[in-house]
């Protein structure tokens, strides 16, 4: 413990600490204020939302906006739990599949040279730079050829092939020392085994981060492009419908926004704390 304390102080001056701390404090205020304002708005009664001069904080906090939201949810034509379970299914399967197949592929590309490997990683990089708005029409044609319109496949499977996750994992896997892979090979591990039990534990911060990113993207996807059946639609879509009815729903909209981000934030906090844990326990080696 004493050693640990000394280690933390290595090359750290009090002046530098103060400098960093003050910069962080100012920027944290800039980042936080709009969020605090948004949270306050969710608890404001309607008359406080349109007050002059505008108030930053809420004076008479009320849960009316949330109550209204739940009433509106209860009135929906398709039971609201359907939207929630649709989103959970899409987010869960999409994220899990993406993390697994992207890191499998990234391992083979980043740690081996074989015919086509350089070209493939170059194509992944380039694919990140094409505006997705124009590929919507070709994508629709592909989906309808596959017969996946009005199925959840149309949202889950493309998420598996997202270039971002592959790119991210390959950048982290490049750093895994070759000696370690050599050792695994000598111990008789095949490529699949090496990927799963040697490389994946080494890049834990990377896939924990990828889970956050993929989860967040799928969770917020309203899926308006390929799904038209009401019973198959997602939670963001349903909440958009509820809160997009003008001024009277401004408070409900704020409440819906707040509820939507609770789950991604929970996933974020859980994964981030695991990333930090990795660091504190791997100090022994």
């Amino acid at each position: 413990m004493a050693f640990r304390l000394r280690e933390r102080k290595l090359n750290r001056s009090a002046g530098g600490d103060l400098f960093i701390f003050s910069i962080l404090a100012v920027s944290a205020a800039f980042m936080a204020l709009p969020l605090v304002y948004a949270v306050c708005n969710a608890f404001k009664p309607l008359n406080e939302l349109f007050l002059f001069p505008p108030q930053f904080f809420v004076r008479n906090p009320t849960l009316d906006n949330f109550k209204d939201l739940f009433v509106l949810m209860g009135q929906s034509w398709v039971p609201f739990s359907r939207y929630i379970s649709n989103t959970l299914l899409i987010t869960g399967l999409g994220t899990a599949g993406h993390v697994i197949i992207a890191s499998m592929g990234a391992y083979s590309i980043s740690k081996h040279i074989f015919p086509g490997s350089k070209l493939f990683s170059e194509i992944v990089l380039l694919s990140l730079m094409f505006a997705y708005q124009v590929t919507a029409v070709p994508n629709y044609i592909i989906m309808s050829k596959l017969g996946w319109i009005n199925t959840h496949f149309s949202m889950i499977v493309p998420a598996w092939g997202a270039s971002l996750g592959f790119f991210l994992m390959s950048k982290f896997m490049v750093q895994v020392p070759d000696e370690l892979l050599e050792a695994a090979r000598i111990d008789g591990a095949g490529e699949f085994r090496t990927w799963w039990s040697v490389v994946m534990p080494m890049v834990r911060p990377a896939w924990l981060t990828l889970i956050i990113l993929s989860f967040q993207a799928l969770w917020g996807d309203s899926g308006g492009r390929f799904i038209y059946k009401e019973a198959l639609k997602t939670l963001p879509y349903a909440l958009q419908q509820i809160s997009s009815a003008g001024l009277a729903r401004a408070g409900v909209g704020a409440a819906a926004g707040l509820i939507m981000i609770i789950i991604p934030i929970a996933v974020f906090v859980y994964n981030q704390s695991n990333i930090i844990e990795t660091m504190t326990t791997s100090g022994i080696d």
């Binding site: 499998m104 493939f120 992944v124 598996w160």
Partner: peptide
């Protein structure tokens, strides 16, 4: 190892 991702991609 690359095939599943490559196909979907």
């Amino acid at each position: 190892l690359l095939a599943p991702f490559a196909t979907v991609f």
